[in-house]
Amino acid sequence: MRTSGYSALAAGLFGSLLVSRTAFAAGGMPQLDFHSFAPQLVWLAIAFVVLYLVMSRLAVPAISDTLDKRQAKIQGDLDAAEKANEDARALVVAYEKRLADAREESRRLQRTQAEADSALASARFTELGEKLNGRIAEAEKRIAGQRDTVMAGLEQMAGEIAQSAYAKLAGQPADTGALGAKVAAAAKETSR
């Protein structure tokens, strides 16, 4: 910085010397007219002070205020965006949790329903089986009853046949009690 300052100084001096030689030839450099210094300096002071007041009182507060406001707005927007992003993430997490819960629930429901269905089915199966067994037992009892009736009829018929055959063979009525017991014993023997 310093060396460039010197070179600029040298260049400036050289340039002004060069120019002043041509200028003096043409009647002098206006920059060296001492009578013009006072009005230039006075108006420089006026213009500079006015501009300084305008800048420091009006422009700088207005601009820094605007820049601050913009910065605050941008920061606020960024924060809001960040918050919205976080909310969205939380929503996604909640949605996924609810989805998983629902899946779990449906699986559970399916399982309990299947269990209930199979329990009902087996209950009905047993009920049906019992009913059928009952009817089989009843039918067997009826068959046994009818067979007893038939057998009793057969016994009676065999007794009567044996009585009439004895009467015809022996020529006298048989002893009903003894004959009956023998017939019953024979019938028991054959049905065995």
Binding site: H35, S36, A38, P39, Q40, V42, W43, I46, A47
Partner: peptide, 10 residues
């Protein structure tokens, strides 16, 4: 005594 004229520079 000061010359404070309004000039082209001003």
């Amino acid at each position: 005594g000061l010359d404070v004229s309004f000039t082209n520079s001003s």
